[in-house]
Amino acid sequence: MSQSYKIKSYCHIKAHEVSLNGKVIYANDSNTFSEFIKAAYKSEKTKYPKFFKMDNLSKLAFLAADVLLKNENFDPEVEQNIALVFSNKSSSLDTDRKHQETIQDPSNYYPSPAVFVYTLPNICIGEVSIKYKLNSENSFFIFDSLNARHLKIYSDILLSNKKADEVLCGWVDFEDDSHYEAFLYLVSLEGNTDHNEHEINKLYNI
């Protein structure tokens, strides 16, 4: 009989609000995503200067993961075997556009290395991995919308094959200031919510 897994906790960031396990823990009415995410990050009191160098997608993923993992009392100085399985719709398009702006004019061709390094969506996984010392399995999928079935099957395989002790997975999408969302959840042997397609969609749509 196959092992059944649980959703241990989840974090949602959208519309200038951060919620943890369904409860709003931070909100503000900033005009821009940049102002919001910076204020939300500072409210978490995480000291990590590299945060300010990240692109919007990585900031979004980093904050959601940080809120969730801190709540689980993971020590960032101790290596954990937590797989990361993220997905989104817009890939790294926001940063791709910024990079294009720097190379569009042949007479003013100065691509920024600091922008270019973020022109892949899975770089945000790397940022979380560096902070939390995760040398674990990771994947980034592109879907039109949250694909709970795929994420569920993929996470279960990682856990049942002992590739990871837990899986941090979900949706991290940044299109522009008005269209962004992070929904990450931790799949584990422990927890109160069954890990299935219905529950993932239910938590996502709260």
């Binding site: 200067p49 160098k53 100065y110 691509p111 920024s112 290395p113 600091a114 390094v117």
Partner: peptide, 17 residues
Amino acid sequence: LGLDSIDALELIVMLDK
């Protein structure tokens, strides 16, 4: 200041630009 290798590349671009 704790700059990193990507910052070094940015400085090289800045010198040129």
